[in-house]
Computed example of a mutant assay.
Amino acid sequence: MAISLHSIPSLSPSFRGFNLNHPSMPCFSISPNPPRHPCFSCRPATIFPRAASSGSASLVSTSDSLTSSLGKVEVYDLNGNAVPLSDLWRDRKAVVAFARHFGCVLCRKRADLLASEKEAMDAAGVALVLIGPGSVDQARKFVEQTKFKGEVYADPKYSSYNALSFVSGVLSTFTPSAGLKIIQLYMEGYRQDWDLSFEKETRTKGGWLQGGILVAGPGINNISYLHKDKEAGDDPDIKDIMKACCL
């Protein structure tokens, strides 16, 4: 899809934050008639400059309350089997990315960025995991569409997001920097999956949640790095993630 930069100041109201046909929908579009089918570019990934408002990311001194909360969380694999969240890093180190939702265009870019480092993660014995707030069916569609190289799990109850106290809300979803990133991603060929985005659970819950990235293990209490997005598309520096997981 070609985009004229001269048209950017007059973007439709849906880009400013709300789709007029679906006023509760927390997503972005850059045209009045957004594409209904995802399309992905094979071009090399572009790393966005780290924003000054980047979310918290640091070595973590794990509290008993956090590990206790995470220990109660279950996610679901692509076969629908329940898996304790902490089992994902009990016997190994893992980079765990939490997506806003499975249709999110910003999350698909982040998934590609992390997957570009999977060879180095494999060499260091580190697992790459992505969790999304949605159903197992949505998780399967995400894998089918993106060909994501890591493990994918669904969190239909949003339990992991609540345990980690991720940011949620309209003001953290619709920001100028997120809008500019979405324009760039569309120009690269990425697309929001509108079928997934318009499903009720995503529209009313998951679409307002921000995600993050966690590096943990081996050992359920061994959380060494945690980034919480302050806004949609608040990507941490990939070098910080690799330093935490693989050095």
Score class of each variant (00 low, 15 high):
Ile131Lys: 11
Ile131Asp: 01
Gly80Tyr: 11
Asp112Met: 14
Leu88Tyr: 06
Tyr76Ile: 05
Glu119Gly: 09
Leu78Arg: 07
Asp137Pro: 03
Gly125Glu: 01
Ala123Cys: 09
Leu128Asn: 08
Met121Cys: 06
Leu113Cys: 11
Leu85His: 06
Cys107Ile: 10
Phe98Met: 10
Ala99Thr: 15
Ser86Met: 15
Lys72Cys: 13
Pro84Asp: 06
Leu114Ala: 03
Asp87His: 13
Asp122Asn: 13
Asn79Thr: 14
Arg92Thr: 15
Leu113Pro: 05
Ala120Met: 06
Leu130His: 04
Asp77Glu: 10
Gly103Leu: 01
Ala124Ile: 00
Gly134Arg: 05
Met121Phe: 08
Asn79Ser: 13
Pro133Trp: 08
Ala124Tyr: 02
Ala97Asp: 13
Cys107Tyr: 06
Val96Met: 08
Tyr76Thr: 11
Leu128Met: 04
Ala99Gln: 07
Ala124Gly: 01
Lys109Thr: 15
Val75Asp: 07
Gly80Asn: 05
Ala94Ser: 13
Arg108Gln: 09
Arg108Met: 04
Cys104Ile: 13
Lys93Leu: 12
Met121Ser: 00
Ser116Thr: 07
Gly125Asn: 02
Val136Trp: 05
Met121Ala: 00
Leu70Ser: 13
Leu70Gly: 04
Val129Phe: 06
His101Gly: 05
Arg110Leu: 11
Gly103Gln: 08
Ala97Trp: 09
Ala127Lys: 12
Gly134Pro: 02
Gly125Thr: 04
Ala124Leu: 02
Cys104Ala: 08
Arg110Cys: 10
Asp87Asn: 11
Cys104Val: 13
Ser69Ala: 15
Asp87Arg: 10
Pro84Thr: 11
Val73Pro: 02
Arg92His: 09
Met121Thr: 00
Lys93Phe: 12
His101Cys: 05
Leu78Pro: 02
Val105Met: 12
Arg92Ile: 14
Arg92Phe: 12
Glu119Met: 05
Phe98Arg: 06
Pro84Val: 08
Gly132Pro: 07
Leu85Asn: 09
Glu117Pro: 00
Arg108Ser: 11
Leu85Ile: 14
Ala82Val: 10
Ser69His: 09
Gly125Phe: 07
Leu113Asp: 15
Glu117Asp: 13
Ala127Leu: 05
Lys72Tyr: 03
Gly125Pro: 00
Val129Gln: 09
Asp77Gln: 01
Ser116Phe: 02
Ser86Leu: 15
Phe102Glu: 02
Ala139Leu: 08
Leu113Arg: 07
Ser69Lys: 13
Ala94Met: 03
Ala139Cys: 01
Gly125Ala: 05
Tyr76Ala: 03
Ser116Ala: 12
Leu78Gly: 03
Gly103Phe: 04
Leu88Ser: 01
Glu117Trp: 00
Ser135Lys: 06
Val129Met: 10
Arg100Asp: 06
Arg108Cys: 02
Met121Arg: 00
Ala120Lys: 14
Val75Phe: 02
Trp89Asn: 08
Ala120His: 03
Asp122Phe: 04
Gln138Pro: 13
Asn81Ser: 14
